[in-house]
Deep mutational scan, measured.
Amino acid sequence: VKVYLPNKQRTVVTVRDGMSVYDSLDKALKVRGLNQDCCVVYRLIKGRKTVTAWDTAIAPLDGEELIVE
Results as ranks from 00 to 15, higher is better:
V51C: 06
P60I: 00
K2G: 06
V41E: 01
D62R: 12
D17G: 11
Y42V: 01
K30R: 13
N7Q: 08
E65F: 04
E64A: 09
R48T: 12
K2M: 08
E64V: 08
R32Q: 14
D55S: 09
A59D: 12
L25K: 04
R16K: 12
P60T: 14
R10S: 15
L61R: 11
R43D: 01
K49P: 05
R43G: 01
S20F: 02
I45K: 15
D55W: 06
V13D: 03
V21G: 00
Q36P: 13
N7C: 05
L25S: 01
V40S: 07
R32H: 15
L44K: 13
G47I: 02
W54S: 02
D37H: 11
R43L: 00
C39N: 02
V40C: 11
E69A: 05
V31E: 15
E69S: 05
S24F: 06
R32P: 04
R16V: 10
E64R: 03
I45S: 11
Y22Q: 14
V31F: 09
R16F: 09
V3I: 07
V51M: 15
T56N: 07
D37T: 06
V1G: 03
D37I: 06
A28D: 06
V12C: 07
D37L: 04
A28K: 04
L5W: 15
M19G: 08
Q9E: 13
E65S: 10
S24E: 03
P60S: 15
K46D: 15
T52F: 03
T14F: 13
V41H: 04
G47Q: 06
K2H: 03
L25D: 03
L5R: 00
V3Q: 00
K49Q: 04
D23E: 15
L44T: 09
D17W: 07
T56S: 13
D26E: 14
D26P: 00
V31A: 15
N7L: 03
Y22C: 09
V40F: 02
G33V: 04
D55F: 01
G33M: 13
L61T: 08
D37Y: 06
V13W: 02
L44S: 10
R16D: 11
G18V: 03
R43N: 04
E64W: 09
V3K: 04
D23Q: 15
L25C: 06
R43T: 08
R48K: 15
D55M: 04
N35S: 14
Q36I: 12
T11A: 10
R16M: 09
S24G: 15
D23N: 07
A59K: 12
N7T: 03
I45V: 12
D55E: 11
G63A: 10
N35T: 14
Y42M: 03
G18P: 03
L29I: 01
N7G: 14
G63L: 05
V15R: 02
Q36Y: 09
V31M: 12
A28V: 15
R43Q: 11
W54D: 03
C39R: 00
R48L: 07
K8H: 11
M19W: 12
T14S: 10
K2R: 14
T11G: 01
I58H: 02
V1D: 00
G18E: 08
Y4P: 00
V31D: 08
A28S: 08
V40E: 08
S20M: 02
K49F: 04
V1I: 11
A28L: 14
S20T: 13
E69K: 04
V12S: 07
R10F: 15
S24D: 01
T50V: 15
S24H: 00
V3S: 02
L5T: 01
D17Q: 13
K2E: 06
Y42F: 13
V15M: 08
R10Y: 14
G63F: 07
Q9N: 07
E64S: 11
L29Y: 04
D17S: 12
L34E: 05
N7W: 05
Q36E: 05
I58E: 04
V41Q: 02
G47M: 00
Q9F: 05
L61I: 09
S20C: 07
A53Y: 06
L44W: 12
T14H: 09
D37R: 09
L61P: 04
A59N: 06
Y4T: 11
K8I: 03
K30E: 07
V1W: 01
L61C: 06
L5M: 12
V21F: 06
R48I: 15
E69T: 09
S20E: 01
L34H: 02
R32I: 15
T56C: 11
V15L: 11
K2C: 15
R10Q: 14
I58M: 13
V13A: 03
D62P: 11
D17N: 14
D62T: 11
G63P: 05
Y4C: 06
Q36C: 09
R43A: 03
T50E: 05
L25G: 03
T11D: 08
Q9V: 13
K30A: 08
T56L: 08
S24Q: 06
T56M: 11
K8Q: 13
R32N: 15
K46R: 13
D23S: 10
Q36T: 10
M19Q: 14
Y42A: 00
G63K: 03
C38A: 13
N35Q: 08
G18T: 06
L61M: 14
D17Y: 07
V12D: 07
C38F: 10
C38G: 14
T52R: 05
Y4G: 03
G47D: 03
T52H: 04
V12Q: 09
P60Q: 15
I67T: 08
V13L: 09
V40D: 00
N7P: 02
A53F: 01
R32M: 15
T14V: 10
L25V: 04
A59F: 13
N35W: 01
V51G: 03
P60D: 15
Y42S: 05
E64K: 07
G33S: 05
V12I: 11
D37Q: 15
L25F: 01
L44F: 09
G33T: 04
T50R: 09
L34V: 00
N35F: 05
T52S: 04
W54G: 00
L5C: 02
T56H: 10
R48M: 09
D26N: 06
K46Q: 13
G33K: 06
K30Y: 06
G18W: 04
D62H: 12
Y42L: 00
N35G: 10
D26G: 11
K49T: 00
T52L: 14
K2D: 06
L44C: 03
Y4R: 13
N35H: 06
G47Y: 01
V13N: 04
L25P: 06
R16Y: 13
Y22V: 07
A28W: 06
R48P: 05
L44Q: 07
L34N: 01
K46T: 06
L29N: 04
E65R: 06
E69V: 05
V15G: 09
D37C: 08
Q9S: 11
A59W: 10
T14M: 11
L29Q: 01
A59R: 13
G18M: 01
V15E: 08
Q36M: 09
V1S: 05
T52M: 15
V13G: 00
W54V: 01
E69Q: 04
M19S: 11
V12F: 08
R10P: 07
C39T: 07
K46E: 15
V21Y: 13
E64N: 13
V31W: 07
R10N: 14
Y42R: 00
V15Y: 04
E65Y: 07
M19C: 11
M19T: 13
M19D: 11
V12R: 11
G63Y: 06
W54L: 03
E65L: 06
S24A: 15
I58S: 07
K8T: 07
Y42K: 05
G47C: 02
Y4F: 12
T14A: 12
V21T: 00
L61A: 09
T52K: 06
V68A: 06
V1M: 10
D17H: 07
V3Y: 13
K46A: 14
V13P: 03
I58P: 01
V51F: 08
K49R: 10
A28R: 00
G63D: 09
A59S: 14
V3C: 08
R43E: 02
V51P: 14
A53S: 12
A59C: 09
L44Y: 13
A28T: 09
A53L: 05
D17A: 14
G18S: 08
A53C: 09
E64I: 04
V12L: 09
Y22F: 12
V1A: 03
E64M: 11
D23L: 05
M19H: 05
W54A: 05
K8F: 06
I45H: 13
Q36R: 14
E69Y: 02
R48V: 14
T56A: 14
R32C: 10
V3M: 02
R10C: 14
D37E: 10
V21H: 00
D37K: 08
P60Y: 14
D62G: 12
V21R: 01
C39W: 02
R32E: 09
Q36S: 09
